[in-house]
Design a protein around this nucleic acid. Structure first.
Lengths: 330, 330
DNA sequence: GTGAAAGCGCTAACAG
DNA sequence: CTGTTAGCGCTTTCAC
């Protein structure tokens, strides 16, 4: 492997000069810099990050920690997050992907990372977040709302997005509106439920608690909860699903019951995963700007790591209602 | 940060002894080891991987390089791969996820990794693979078949899986069989097409070239190609789709045409992504053991990195036909 | 502007 | 069995 010493020898300067030239130090003559840079390129030099890291106290590694990577997370969530982060991460950093569900927090090698992006989907992640905070480790939390003002947090306005969607449904004449939520302890479940409730209240529609169900964001839970709803004597006409997977499961249940969407029952999803525009019928859903959220989160983390001042520690991005064909006009 | 020197001081030994104890050297008395390990735990020691890496010439970082991460890859492909790799990766290593589509190969910092897992989906990745080989960099290629015997390669027997599926279709009485492939230059496209062809030949069914289409593994390409097939005067009765996304798009096209699966036309997918068992109808598909493939690949890479002898450089895992409800019995 | 020397935390001869 | 010493590749005082 070619090191700065090799370059130094070739250039007839000291390795210190090479280091400075490569790091664009103002101490070095421009001419010298050019020569050394040129040489480094020719010799195919690439820095040893272990050595750099050892002296700079840096790891050049960012960790992306995911709630329950191995279960319950819709997979394009992951892909979108990674794509978003990479799009703003400078080349000095690598991105390491891990799952949060670790039994013993002290097992986690924080040492390996300069900072963490926590993609949080559940209150279960709170101990992890508390741990990071206690250790004063640089991190940002993306997706889930964290009340603590000290925690840098990028979220989407789920409740507003849901409200907008349900408002639209109500505008189409729906009043018997059901909600199939995600996991009980996922913050997003409550957020989205709140959105439905607010919308109902605004339109002075009485809430029917039998219509408010809790699933676990899985396809199967959508199927089962919808089967339950369909077993009711008084059917809802519109079902807001906590995420697209639930909606897909619900759609399946409707078909199994010999009914049709939206003719017999209307459906709204959440996330806008790629597949739902190809469903039969294409699903009306709320798009969450996950990629953008990760980009903002990464920028903030980089600011934090590199000691820049953070002007704004809470960012909330807007969702977007995507109208397709799963809502009936009554 | 607590270092081995701190532990040494606390234990009243030299830092060398601490290093050896922590690395379980046989040179150290068991009693001493115990004491030092205990102390390290109490003091919350965790090694500095930059320092370790600097002296050991290791990076403690494995790279997962993906074909076109930002386009065209079904997203649970990524999630399954990461889960598979983590399940066998020992805790000393982090996993960094990157995309292969880099313009200039020399831009890639191979230096940062001990080895690479290349999740290859396209012949376009070949230059990258050639580059790694030329650099004698440790890597394994997962998913795509590489003829070079020197390249460690874990694949699935796509052609056999497809054959099994098409054989089943033929057994149900189908003879007018179409194929919608993936991207033209993706090896898997050819592999799967070969499977269809072989199956047809075995049953002495003449091939109708008008039925052999090429898409790009996207939902949209499934929709469009199926629309084309449906415009034919002589419709196929069974369509084998190169992956599940194509099948989902095709299913949409069938519905749009006012037809039904499987009553009017039968469909087979490939991948067994989570969503397809909740489609209407649930999709018959070929499951590719992606997670297992990644596990095997990771094990081999670790063997390579740690200098163990590789007894078998080519591993091919079997696919599994998942029968659901998208094939009609004629 | 540039170089010599020290040191980051760790491992590996070498000595005892 | 344990300690002393040197050195991995790099950055950073401190001199010149």
């Amino acid at each position: 492997m070619v090191t700065i010493k090799d370059i130094a020898k070739a250039a007839g300067v000291s390795h210190t000069t090479v280091s400075r030239a490569l790091n664009n130090s103002s101490l070095i003559k421009n001419e010298t810099k050019q020569k050394i840079r040129q040489l480094a390129k020719e010799m195919n030099y690439s820095p040893n990050y272990s050595a750099k890291g050892l002296v700079n106290q840096k790891k050049y590694l960012i960790g992306l920690f995911f709630s329950s990577l191995h279960k319950g997370t819709s997979s394009n969530f992951l892909a979108d997050s990674i794509a978003g982060i990479h799009s703003v991460l400078d080349t000095n950093y690598s991105l390491s992907v891990e799952s949060i569900d670790v039994v013993d927090l002290t097992e986690i090698n924080l040492q390996r990372y300069d900072g963490l992006i926590v993609m949080s989907q559940s209150d279960d992640d709170q101990p992890f977040i508390d741990y990071l905070k206690e250790k004063e480790f640089p991190f940002v939390v993306v997706n889930r709302h964290i009340n603590d003002p000290a925690v840098i947090n990028v979220t989407a306005d789920d409740a507003a997005g849901v409200m907008q969607a349900v408002d639209y449904g109500i505008g189409c004449g729906h009043t018997k509106i059901a909600y199939i939520g995600g996991k009980k302890n996922f913050r997003s479940t409550k957020e989205r439920e709140k959105g439905v409730l607010k919308s109902l209240k605004k339109a002075s529609i009485p809430v029917n608690l039998a219509y408010f169900l809790t699933g676990d964001y899985s396809l199967e839970s959508g199927l089962q909860n919808m089967e339950y709803l369909l077993s009711l004597s008084d059917l809802p006409t519109l079902v807001f699903c906590g995420n697209d997977d639930i909606a897909i499961g619900a759609l399946r249940a409707v078909h199994l019951a010999g009914l049709r969407v939206p003719q017999n029952i209307s459906l709204i999803g959440f996330d806008d995963s790629p597949v739902v525009s190809y469903l039969n019928p294409p699903l009306t859903t709320v798009r969450k700007p996950l990629k953008e959220m990760c980009q903002e989160g990464t920028k903030l983390l980089l600011d934090l790591i590199e000691g820049r001042t953070i002007e704004q520690s809470k960012i909330e991005l807007s969702t977007l209602l995507i109208l397709r064909e799963s809502i009936n006009y009554l």
